[in-house]
Design a protein around this nucleic acid. Sequence first.
DNA 1: CGCGGTGTTGAGACCTGTCAAGACGTGTGG
DNA 2: CCACACGTCTTGACAGGTCTCAACACCGCG
Lengths: 239, 239
Amino acid sequence: MIEPFLRKLRVRDDVSSQEEAALRAAVGERRAVPAHRPIIRAGENVRESTLLLSGWVARAKDLENGERQITEINVVGDFVDLHSFTLKTLDHDVIALTNCEIATVPHEKLEDITVTFPHLTRLLWLATNMDAAIHREWMLSMGRRTALARVAHIFCELLIRLQIAGVASEDGYDFPLTQLQLADCLGLTSVHVNRTLQELRKRELIELRNRRLRILDAPGLQRVGQFDPGYLYLKKQPR
Amino acid sequence: MIEPFLRKLRVRDDVSSQEEAALRAAVGERRAVPAHRPIIRAGENVRESTLLLSGWVARAKDLENGERQITEINVVGDFVDLHSFTLKTLDHDVIALTNCEIATVPHEKLEDITVTFPHLTRLLWLATNMDAAIHREWMLSMGRRTALARVAHIFCELLIRLQIAGVASEDGYDFPLTQLQLADCLGLTSVHVNRTLQELRKRELIELRNRRLRILDAPGLQRVGQFDPGYLYLKKQPR
DNA sequence: CGCGGTGTTGAGACCTGTCAAGACGTGTGG
DNA sequence: CCACACGTCTTGACAGGTCTCAACACCGCG
């Protein structure tokens, strides 16, 4: 059940068998969540962290006028709210974008880990810091990249993250987001995302239909998206 | 020396005297850094984390074409790179915006803390998670707020953060950033920031001259900036 | 078969960017 | 003390990327 999460950690550092066992022991039962259901609401008390076992989840912030910004996409193997362990309450909603399966870890168990497993604690800390690194890269996109580059960039990011999770092929992956959801990730409107996708298709960089993305020209897409994977921290080293 | 950082923690949770002593013991000597000097370069190996004792610092990401996005402003009492403890290398530069004083904490000492002081570890983890919360709010600004709201919002945020650090008065603070630096925080151009500042002045919300910001109408500024301090986690509770 | 959500297209508006020039202020050197 | 240089702030005219509004097409599903 926690294999995708372990794989994600093990790209960045070794995880001992004791640590692996401690993680396994901390995780609760598998549970289904239907699409569009909020998993966590901004401001509510959170007493457990949620690991995503399948499906796609978003961290969304809403403005009073109804505008929405998605601040991160989570996929299989991501904790959707590991940061709630220290924050105790979230500044954003966590929403299932598709049907999902999740499992939760009570915060007391995480607290036990911080007492007994300092290195594992650092790996969990690392996971939240990697989220922040993704936040920063998205800020760069929204502040300084054109619409075309933003869309190209997020497709490149997700290819790598989904490959690590083990649910992407060499050249593509299932991409279940609507154009409106994608627009909410990128700080654009769905109309403009639509036109931007057409431009990427016209340039023969991608193919996207029936919720399946195929990347036809990965180097080209990376160039257009000014994509450099450094911020994903793909190097294994002691943490 | 670490008082502003302690004050920041103690807004969110209690810090025991042993924990305080452990922190004090971990911090090295005070050192000066001149304005515009990079403190850390993206990609380089980092073996210590830097605590800001005075001055203003930015986390900046650059694009090849020279465009720059500042992803966070750090002020007195902030660690400018506590996340480097687990990341080991940064995805952004850390730049002194003004003359600064800093002190560093070797990563080995932080590692010792994770072994011996689980609760203090969680507080340090919390500090990095609060950075991420600020990242998310800035994303919301860049993705969904107008230029006017963005400028108003950042002024509101900094008022609270500087008050906690103990370097702001009731209604204002020294604001040393140039309009270009501010533009790089907000994903705007300096020309547009200039016009936006004029609009805020015309509406009698702020006064800004000689690097001093006075907030003339805090409720009005918060309204324009759609500012809600929830994301700053100002509530004290066990972490 | 009709419905609701999603994707597509067009025309026009608007916010923000670009380019360029000049004003202002402060520090430096003659 | 003046002259000058440099960074910053300000202003204007214009360009352009993205948004808004609206209509229509498409499609899976009940």
